[in-house]
Design a protein around this nucleic acid. Structure first.
Length: 936
RNA sequence: GCUCGGGUGGUGGAAUUGGUAGACACGCAAGACUUAAAAUCUUGUGUCCAUUUGGACGUGCGGGUUCAAGUCCCGCCCCGAGCACCA
């Protein structure tokens, strides 16, 4: 009897599409459940078997929840703005939209073959104007808001302006870089540019000159999370620091809430840890040091104010503003040379150079605020301009870097720790007793921190302060294929374009490279400018020249569209709102979110940030987007290698490779079966191998070497799902990908075991048929053994799915099928629920069998079978688990029995009696729930 | 260096709260059906000792708690991931 998976799967795929079987209903009496996948960037390479892993898991869960009576939202879309399509456009001139269209079509085709229960009517694409209209709109809300630190939420900037007009910036509690003060009159007297200069220091998205990561090779700026090890994450190009006028997001305003919010969401520990790390909260104090002979002060941040008497020098970052002012004449040349050298170093050089201690003395001295001592002021690139205040008070006895610096330059190292030896290294633990420190003497360090902060505050030289490592995120990119900003620049002042003109659609350009003036690609668009009559002029209308303002030429980064897409799925066709309040209220948070761990500090942090903002503005009622997150592990490729003798050019089998001088070459995995090379296929693979010669092993075969690597085209180790779907069917692929191991774990792809899963499905199908392929389903009542098998499976599958253990479910079903096959069970009473159990994993086959059972309605609408504990009791048995003067028995019994019931059960039970035969049970002791101690 | 994971047969991996370690599957071996191969089916498969019944040892290493430890506690070793001049 054949398992015609292709036929079956096509039939149901078509039916589901026609019937819109998986459409999610807005508003339903059923409870809602929202299962989301991280939407893909549609790349030209298509899907390999690693991509659908997470989608399969989420699909299984979505189907399970439907069976459990939930109204499930399970959508899919595309993160379709991005670099590859643009680079392809630069090379070929093909519009990225076209490339994207093609790739999306291919993705869709591949996805459809795997039998996902997506509600495709809700598909979104970030590059679609109907979608990015709302990305632009949200951007505007951010632009038109500031963060009130007293109410701890974002508020409209109009309220801040009203405040300025009434009483200047006095009494303003806002997250801002602005430090000056002004009265209402002074505010009103300012011109528009000056006002904006100040406002931009309050806005949540703002345009400002800031130090950014500039990647010359990509021709764009990058956010911190787009840089790994000092080079761009995409392409690995060097990155340098540059002062540029750029859009940024004041995510730092949300640092504390982003940190606190982690406690109420169910994310993997490692990911939470990464976010905590990224936010990098540290508590301490800011302290100002006077400078001898100068008005300025050096402000430092320290986590160890208790060590203030250990300060023996100060270090400023080379970029620090004061460096020029305070440098003495005789140190001028040295300092300038050092600053110059530091500015030439890329981020990467600087990191690589950590062990090299460099610095220069400014010639200036700071005054110790307590002792009044003169402290030399140095500069050094181990102090980062971007963290804290860009200056540190150096305490060599308590900080290893300071210690190294002092040692290197022969600066004094004071010891302020009682009984600690600091001759070889700094003592960095916070458990020392402080000494040589005046009023802090004899205090344990932890106590001294508080006392020191109090003293600092009383003296008016600083205050207790919390610092965050998190930086504001650069929001503009010098690229074409992204969302245009809904912004024009009027006399140097950025202004938001009214909602009625959104979306601002991407203009056509004839080339996708920067302009000759160095403007971003949008600078190539003709008449890309804003007219006072509030329209982008389409024609080359010179006479409007005096009433048009330049448009913002940057586009938004990739994470703009992906920061809120989960909301759009709730209401994808709404033309008046990004999501209606009612629908956002109904669908609420994403209950289960599945995706890769690589977005830990990017997408997952930005989405949380935007969610909190939209919550603050009253658009949505929740302030965390994702309730539970699972990171699926990467599926790695198993590369195959052939070994070519460098002299003869012969290919040497793995066993004999050491006898020759060989070079290792990747061989396409489709030419290899169980490490044995298909020699004929290999010869045909590439023309240059046509006449290849081989040194075979003793069995006359060619064995390949192998290694586990990332799946990639260039390694010839890519397995596409398509070929497997064709050969084994989507149901097999789905089961097999789950069966491979725990979802979260990285695992090498190995097609060896797929036959086992395929056989399982065939065996499942065989329960319904006789040897001739005739349906044999019996209406007879199932016996106890059959029911036990079934209910064991129901119990386990339910428990396993409830704890997201997707891999073990397959085994459980296999066991059930094996048992029922042995029992020759063909009872409808058993097969019906069993089919529903199978349905999330192998939906096509389940539908087919469900139909064979005589049902006209889809199996999708069936309730998940309920576990009946009493069905297990019948077959309870006991066995001895240890003998040590006392005999103990483990007995399988329902867990809800009382101690007395268990005793009764044990005594009454046939098999127990069998074990106890000839013995006289005296006492039964219940240890844990299901374990019974019988003392004999 | 810091933080978080993780070490179980030839392989992928099972093992709720401590309770028959190695489920399930792959691979391998033997057998059945075949002229033969493939496919399929049956049986076996942690290691060691024993011809059998059986026994001993076994979850990275060393201790400990317990009637009972892969699981809990203490001390190490190794692997993976993330962060890292963050003051």
């Amino acid at each position: 009897m054949e398992y015609k998976h292709q036929e079956i799967e096509k039939k149901w795929r078509d039916k589901w599409a026609t019937d819109k079987t998986y459409a999610a209903k807005d508003f339903d009496s059923k409870p809602k459940y929202y299962v989301l996948d991280m939407f893909p960037y549609p790349s030209g390479a298509g899907l390999h078997v690693g991509h659908p892993l997470g989608y399969i898991a989420s699909d299984i869960y979505a189907r399970y929840k439907r069976h459990k009576g939930f109204n499930v939202l399970h959508p899919m879309g595309y993160d379709s703005f991005g670099l590859p399509a643009e680079q392809y456009a630069i090379q070929t001139g093909q519009h990225p939209e076209k490339t994207t269209e093609t790739n999306v079509a291919r993705y869709r085709e591949q996805l459809d073959k795997i039998g996902f229960s997506f509600d495709w009517d809700r598909e979104v694409r970030t590059s679609n104007p109907d979608y990015y209209k709302w990305t632009q709109w949200i951007f505007k809300q951010l632009f038109l808001s500031y963060y009130d630190t007293k109410e701890d939420k974002a508020k409209p900037i109009a309220e801040l302006i009203a405040h300025f007009e009434k009483q200047g910036n006095e009494g303003v509690s806002a997250h801002s870089d602005y430090e000056g003060s002004f009265s209402a009159e002074e505010w009103k007297a300012k011109n528009e540019q000056d006002k904006e200069e100040i406002l931009s220091q309050y806005r949540i998205t703002f345009l400002a000159d800031s130090w950014v990561n500039w990647c010359p090779a990509l021709g764009t700026v990058l956010a911190n999370d787009e840089i790994k090890d000092g080079v761009s994450e995409r392409g690995g190009h060097p990155v340098e620091q540059k002062l540029m006028r750029q859009w940024s997001m004041r995510i730092t305003a949300y640092a504390e809430r982003l940190l606190q919010g982690l406690d109420k969401i169910d994310f993997p520990d490692s990911l939470k840890e990464q976010q905590r790390n990224w936010i990098g909260k540290s508590k301490g104090a800011s302290v100002s040091f006077d400078i001898e002979g100068h008005n300025g002060k050096i402000e430092v941040f320290t986590t160890r104010p208790d060590t203030i008497y250990g300060v023996s020098f100060m270090v400023l970052a080379p970029e620090h503003q004061l460096v020029n002012e305070i440098t003495s004449a005789d140190q001028q040349a040295e300092i300038e040379a050092y600053v110059q050298a530091a500015s030439l170093k890329t981020e990467r050089d600087r990191q690589a150079d950590v062990k090299n201690i460099t610095g220069a003395f400014t010639g200036a001295f700071a005054i110790h605020p307590f002792s009044g001592e003169k402290i030399p002021v140095w500069i050094g690139d181990y102090v980062l301009a971007s963290y804290g205040t860009g200056a540190v008070m150096a305490v060599p006895c308590g900080d290893q870097r300071d210690w190294d610096f002092a040692q290197h330059f022969g600066i004094e190292i004071k010891n302020i720790f009682k009984d600690q030896d600091i001759s070889e290294a700094a003592y960095t633990e916070k458990d020392a007793i402080i000494s040589n420190s005046d009023f802090l003497n004899d205090m344990p360090a932890k106590k001294a921190i508080g006392v020191a902060i109090k003293a600092i505050e009383e003296k008016g030289i600083g205050k207790g302060k919390t610092n965050y490592r998190l930086r504001d995120a650069v929001f503009s990119r010098q690229r074409y294929w992204g969302e245009p900003f809904p912004i024009y620049i009027e006399n140097g002042v950025p202004k938001a374009i009214e909602d009625e003109f959104l979306p601002i659609e991407l203009p056509e350009v004839d080339k996708y490279l920067p302009t000759e003036d160095g403007d971003p690609p949008l600078g190539n668009a003709e008449n890309w400018s804003w007219c006072r009559n509030k329209k982008i002029i389409k024609s080359n209308d010179k006479q409007n020249g005096n009433c048009t303002w330049p448009m913002e030429l940057n586009t938004m980064p990739g994470w703009a569209g992906s920061s809120w897409y989960y909301l759009r799925y709730m209401d994808p066709h709404n033309e008046d709102e990004f999501v209606s309040k009612e629908k956002a209220e109904y669908w609420g948070q994403v209950d289960l979110y599945i995706g890769g761990a690589e977005h830990a500090t990017g997408h997952l942090l930005y989405s949380r940030f935007w969610c909190k903002f939209l919550h603050d503005m009253g658009y949505i009622s929740f302030d965390e987007p994702f309730k539970k997150l699972i990171n699926q592990g990467m599926i790695l490729g198993r590369s195959s290698f052939v070994y070519r003798d460098k002299e003869s050019g012969k290919f040497v089998t793995f066993e004999k490779r050491k006898e020759y001088k060989t070079a290792r070459l990747h061989a396409d995995i489709s030419l290899v079966n169980g490490d044995k090379l298909d020699i004929e296929a290999f010869k045909k693979w590439r023309p240059e191998y046509e006449n290849a010669e081989f040194v075979l092993n003793d069995d006359g075969e060619y064995t390949c070497g192998h290694e586990v690597e990332k799946m990639s085209k260039s390694k010839y180790n890519v397995q596409t799902p398509d070929e497997l779907v064709e050969r084994y069917g989507a149901d097999t692929l789905r089961c097999y990908e789950m069966f491979l191991g725990p979802l979260e774990q990285a695992k090498p792809w190995d097609v060896q075991g797929i036959n086992g899963v395929y056989n399982f499905l065939r065996k499942f199908k065989r329960l319904f048929h006789d040897e001739n392929g005739q349906i044999v389903i019996s209406d007879e009542a199932a016996d106890k053994k059959e029911l036990k098998s079934l209910h064991k499976a129901i119990k386990k599958v339910t428990e396993e799915l409830d704890r997201y253990s997707f891999n073990t479910v397959v085994s459980t079903l296999m066991i059930a099928v094996n048992e029922l096959t042995d029992l020759k069970c063909n009872k409808k009473e058993v097969l019906e629920p069993l089919t529903v159990l199978l349905s999330p994993y192998a939906p096509h086959l389940a539908e087919e069998l469900w139909e064979k059972l005589g049902h006209s309605e889809s199996v999708v609408y069936q309730q998940f079978p309920k576990f009946d504990e009493s069905k297990l009791v019948e077959d309870a048995f006991a066995y001895p688990v240890s003998f040590n003067g006392k005999m103990r028995f483990k007995i399988e019994l329902p867990t809800n029995l009382s101690k007395e019931d268990i005793e009764k059960e044990v005594m009454a039970h046939e098999k127990t009696n069998h074990y106890l035969e000839g013995k006289d049970p005296k006492k039964v002791i219940v240890v844990p729930k299901r374990i019974v101690n019988i003392v004999v």
